[in-house]
């Protein structure tokens, strides 16, 4: 029996440690998987725990843009459905011109979407702000670009 204990010890320690670490530290089990402030600086991703959820409404950039296009009017575009989820943009219109565009909703239900959109959305925002009627798709983020384009088009159409 002593032989068994000696030979079982490393495996038991390894397995036990693994279970404890996961139980204590994993966001899925430890209960701190609230959707707050994930994604570090870009602060735009939701948690990965809710499949098919859409990106949160991004209030921080709205506040920020209000100062850049000071007396503009905020118009929110239609929701464009894409393969990965809805995309919706909001534009600031001043003097009949679109002076700023940013996305408010985008797919983030899965890790790949989160990852792609974390870099695609800022690029799209920048390009669309500069040239709302014609901007390139971001490679690797075709669906999001398409949705972004469609949602923005609905704003342009309403003007």
């Amino acid at each position: 029996m002593a032989g068994l204990a000696r030979r079982l010890a490393p495996a038991a320690a390894l397995g036990g440690l693994a279970v404890v670490i996961v139980g204590v530290a994993d966001p899925a089990l430890a209960g701190h998987s609230t959707p707050t402030a994930t994604g570090g600086t870009s602060a735009t991703t939701s948690t990965g725990t809710a499949p098919a959820a859409s990106g949160p409404v991004d209030t921080s950039t709205q506040a920020q843009t209000a100062t850049t296009c000071a007396d503009g009017q905020q118009i929110t575009g239609g929701t464009a459905s894409t393969r990965w989820g809805p995309v919706q943009v909001s534009a600031t219109v001043a003097g009949g011109q679109v002076c700023e565009v940013h996305a408010v909703v985008w797919p983030s239900g899965d890790g790949q979407s989160q990852m792609i959109n974390a870099y695609a959305i800022p690029q799209l925002d920048a390009m669309a702000t500069q040239s709302p009627t014609q901007f390139d798709y971001v490679s690797g983020a075709t669906y999001t670009s398409q949705g972004y384009h469609d949602s923005l088009q609905s704003i342009l159409d309403s003007m």
Binding site: A18, V22, G39
Partner: peptide
């Protein structure tokens, strides 16, 4: 970021 915020990522890393 993955370990702190993503569900099941601690588990995956331990695995």
């Amino acid at each position: 970021d993955l370990l702190a915020n993503q569900a099941w990522m601690v588990a995956a890393t331990v695995g």
